[in-house]
């Protein structure tokens, strides 16, 4: 599997190697290796390194090239995204233990809203989809892709890869600036091969998009932990829209986040994706093609958005704009009159 890398590592100089595979630099950094001569091959350069020093780190100069080959092969493995035409959620049990008698099929290109009182189980439904539940979550639901049950290996290899998720978590914890965070995420997604220019471009796109969505502006060298709730959410939306090519998008209550939610949804629902939005917002709920009503932890009803409801959207949109204007005026110390 690593043979091509074995050959490259054997014959290329370190300079050529890190030029072609910039991610190799991380390998040397992580090993805490002393500076190696970039004009030599790895094996030659290691001859000059202190054996005793390597031994302390549990290394010999024979193992390092093989480890680097394994590292490069893992880091550059292309991320294959599985296309998904439909998902089906097979009902389990609600919180009262009653059977949830539904089979909800959602096709690619469909937006479904999930509504219901707080605590009714909206997030749980999204969580079941995220982990591709197979009767092993509290709801006992099962999730099926393209009409076929998943075997365990498939489930494991798909978990976290086919679903892009905006959860209710609104804070960052990592000690990184916005630029560093986006760059690391871009590199982790690009399987180590992306030329530097491409990474920069994605970072810029995400950054300017996040700033458009957020109320207050922030800069590339702001620490992510210092972003406001709205700014964090805007950054997560932009990141989700531009870094991820997952065919399923799950959005949990984006409305309380201080971002332009309609712009955010439009951005996230681009292309032929399967989108589920848990929401309390009438405008978002009715913009969807279908809505799922959750009660007591179970799917209580599934409604297609009716033509009348679609027709009412324009009017609801106006009301929504009016509320937004009032909110803005209030914030700027204006007097309000409707």
């Amino acid at each position: 599997m690593n043979t091509s890398f074995d050959l490259i590592i054997d014959s290329w100089t370190l300079e050529e190697l890190t030029e072609a595979y910039p991610v190799a630099r991380d390998f040397f950094l992580n090993l805490n290796l002393p500076p190696l001569n970039p004009g030599r091959t790895l094996a030659d350069a290691l001859l000059a390194a202190d054996d005793a020093w390597l031994a302390e780190f549990g290394l010999t100069c024979h193992e390092i090239p093989a480890q680097l080959a394994a590292f490069l092969s893992a880091m550059t493995a292309p991320e294959t995204i599985r296309e998904i035409a439909s998902i089906t959620i097979i009902g389990g049990r609600n919180k009262l233990g009653e059977p949830e008698d539904v089979e909800l099929r959602v096709e690619a290109g469909t937006v479904v809203s999930v509504v219901g009182p707080t605590g009714s189980g909206k997030s749980r439904l999204l969580g079941d989809i995220e982990c591709l539940a197979q009767g092993d979550t509290p709801t006992k639901r099962r999730v099926i892709l393209d009409g076929k049950a998943l075997c365990e290996d498939e489930r494991f290899s798909l978990e976290g890869k086919i679903v892009a998720q905006l959860s209710q978590n609104m804070n960052f914890v990592m000690d990184l600036t916005v630029a560093e965070f986006l760059e690391m995420h871009a590199r982790s997604r690009a399987a180590g091969q992306a030329p530097a220019g491409k990474t920069e471009q994605v970072v810029q796109t995400c950054f300017s998009c996040a700033n458009d969505l957020a109320g207050e502006k922030f800069s590339l060298d702001t620490k992510v932990t210092l972003l406001s709730g709205g700014q964090s959410r805007a950054l997560m939306v932009a990141d989700c829209a531009y870094m991820s090519s997952s065919p399923i998008v799950l959005i949990d209550e984006i409305e309380n986040a201080g971002v332009d939610r309609r712009a955010a949804i439009t951005l996230l629902a681009r292309k032929e994706k399967i989108v589920l939005i848990s929401t309390h917002d009438p405008l978002l709920a009715l913009s969807a093609d279908k809505r799922v009503i959750i009660k007591n932890g179970g799917i209580f009803k599934v409604l297609e958005t009716s033509p009348e409801e679609k027709a009412s959207l324009a009017e609801i949109g106006k009301m929504d704009d009016m509320i937004a204007r009032i909110r803005r005026d209030l914030r700027h110390g204006e007097r309000i009159k409707v």
């Binding site: 992580n30 893992a74 959860s167 978590n169 914890v173 990592m174 989700c240």
Partner: peptide
């Protein structure tokens, strides 16, 4: 991992894979 966003989980998992490319990672 439930406390942070998916983006942050992915960045963290990538840091893990950089140190140990062979391991299987579970959340």
């Amino acid at each position: 991992g439930d406390i942070v966003s998916q983006a942050e989980r992915e960045v963290f998992a990538w840091g893990v894979r950089q140190v140990n490319a062979k391991s299987q990672v579970f959340f």
